[in-house]
Design a protein around this nucleic acid. Structure first.
Lengths: 185, 185
DNA sequence: GAGTATATATATCGGTTCGATATGGAAAAC
DNA sequence: GTTTTCCATATCGAACCGATATATATACTC
């Protein structure tokens, strides 16, 4: 999924500036499972303009630089539908943390303990954050989009599962008895 | 975690060729949570040689081109320990599948059904694969490394949780009643 | 009140990494 | 007999990230 398609998707949900598109991947609806940097968003938007898939309107602001609000054209909406018709690439997950824990034997015990505790915290807080967003959306009374709801629920399930697994195996790792649990199964 | 560090890690576990390093990220111990392409592995290995962190030995083969077997130097082992002393970057997850499911409303019903079924299958088969590897390692009688054991167990837990969540919410998505489940909680 | 951090907003640049491709023969599958 | 997969190194263009430059308003802290 290239950044051009990602921009297409954000703009499909409504007009936006480059800055706002970035936010959609940082705290917005696509956070947690897609990302894009300014260094690829701005060139992608230029390409969108050049190909007639989007149009931009400059809005003056006092003090701040003018913002360019991008909006999809009819061709842009078609391109988006064409893009989501393609088969998706497999999911990919990257974790430096697991990489470090893999080499737990090469690290001081207290460092491993600290590492794993921070890891648990990060997963727990991310799960909680999504839960809070979902609760707010429910409370607001606005209509719930089933696709969006499934996706955020997926996030909660995975983050929760990760935190639970780590909590349950933390002490086993630290005591060095890596194999005990499964042997009992 | 750059590819240079990744190569350092693979070589820390024993001598290897560029090709074997690639396999370590495709089917080997680092699959599922780290990756690297030939386009970055070979330049990284050259840099390792240039910096004196590794040494290479050319081994002749009949028919096939010579293989270059890389091995860490003492400086390379130090560099590896120094690298795993650094704080890890946050985990990152990327999913085109979730991206598509987010836009389920814009897709034909049968396509969404097909998409989600394939998604469930991929997670289930990945979980099963790791479970099989773990069983084999247990049966082999070789000593179990606690770090490595924790990491592969993490993979099972997460893949299982993903498959379970999708199985449980599949029909709810397809019937369009996205919000019913949580409303009952 | 001064100083610092954060938010808004666009844009570019260097460096890293990916994905595809080239090469070429062996072995295995069909 | 033919196609696919495996072994093995290597490069190239395109894509992408992270940092940085620029500029101002607001908010927070000392």
């Amino acid at each position: 999924m290239d950044v051009k398609t990602l921009c297409l998707a954000v703009l499909f949900k409504g007009e936006a500036t480059g800055y706002e598109i970035k936010k959609a991947f940082e705290e917005g609806p696509f956070a947690h499972f897609q990302r894009a940097s300014f260094g690829s968003i701005y060139p992608a938007l230029s390409r969108l303009l050049a190909e007639g898939l989007a149009e931009a309107e400059a809005r003056e602001q006092d003090g701040r630089p003018d913002k360019k609000v991008y909006r999809l054209t009819a061709a842009g909406r078609d391109a988006f539908h064409q893009a989501i018709g393609q088969d998706p690439e497999p999911d990919q997950f990257r974790s430096d943390m697991l990489f470090l824990l893999y080499f737990a034997r090469e690290l001081p015990m207290d460092r491993v303990a600290d590492l794993i505790d921070r890891y648990i915290d990060s997963y727990r807080s991310q799960a909680e954050h999504i839960v809070a967003c979902r609760a707010q959306r429910l409370a607001s009374g606005e209509e719930i989009d089933p696709g969006r709801w499934l996706v955020s629920g997926f996030g909660v399930a995975i983050y929760q599962a990760a935190a639970d697994y780590l909590i349950e195996n933390r002490d086993r790792l630290l005591s060095g008895n890596g194999r005990l649990p499964e042997a009992a199964e």
